[in-house]
Design a protein around this nucleic acid. Structure first.
Lengths: 133, 133
DNA sequence: TATTGACCTTCCAGTCGCTGTAACCTTTAG
DNA sequence: CTAAAGGTTACAGCGACTGGAAGGTCAATA
């Protein structure tokens, strides 16, 4: 199949598919005599797998390792485990950071003053400076 | 003061300070005869304000507007209000997304198999594909 | 005085994961 | 015959820095 069919079936932009090939995440497919990329049915599964991983925010480099590890049936599962565990840890870190961020933004509340001189938000942002000194 | 002193006092990397000047967030300072940047004490406050905003994840373009609005005492406070509200909304959106992400990653659990053929994580990642079809 | 090392300058490239654009070629339909 | 749709490559841009190269300047020490 051609790239646009693969794009439709995998739900990944054709441009993105070429990009994945470029960065070595996807192996280069056969080419037709006109230079068009020609994909196999199995490529759909690979790309769907990749998309699933991306939806879990797993970095391309890690996905690459997950794909490689699947090609080698004797490879240890520890690699997979580590990647997922790290990803989970990172998501949890990000969650904690966002929670703090939300709190900080909440304390700024909203301001209904008409002139910035009286703007409570700006005053609080500046007060943070003072508090820090 | 020279850039490294400003960097120390504001807790912002000298390289980042030059970058802020380049993108127009910080106005270009005077230059000494040797070409070195020469900053005023007030620049420390400006940079601390910028850093505080960055810690709240506010984009540079928005911070630029916050800085500009402060220079104009007649400007409306609505701009400030809008920027903070949008930032808060975005943080809350990100939080909801991360919560879903965490759930998905949790369902993959950890795998203690030795061979990828039996790897429960990979099987679950693939099962997601099947479920979708 | 020579030199070392710290600090300053500019400019260019890389990060991450795409996405937009330009310029061109091929295929298909009307 | 022509136009639209789809394929190709290569390069640039996003955001917010960061690293490195190549060079100029300055203060302190041997």
């Amino acid at each position: 199949m051609k790239i646009s069919e693969l794009a439709t079936k995998s739900q990944i932009n054709a441009k993105t598919i070429r990009y994945y090939e470029q960065v070595g995440l996807l192996s280069a497919p056969q080419r037709a005599s006109n230079g068009y990329r020609h994909y196999q049915p199995g490529d759909v599964d690979t790309l769907i797998f990749i998309r699933r991983c991306r939806e879990l925010n797993i970095p391309l480099d890690d996905i690459k390792r997950l794909v490689e590890v699947q090609a080698d049936p004797n490879a240890s599962c520890a690699v997979v485990d580590k990647i997922i565990a790290e990803q989970l840890a990172q998501v949890q870190r990000a969650q904690r950071e966002l929670a703090l961020l939300e709190q900080s933004l909440q304390t700024l509340a909203s301001c209904s003053a008409e002139q910035v001189e009286k703007c409570s938000i700006l005053h609080k942002l500046k007060a943070r400076e003072e508090a820090e000194k």
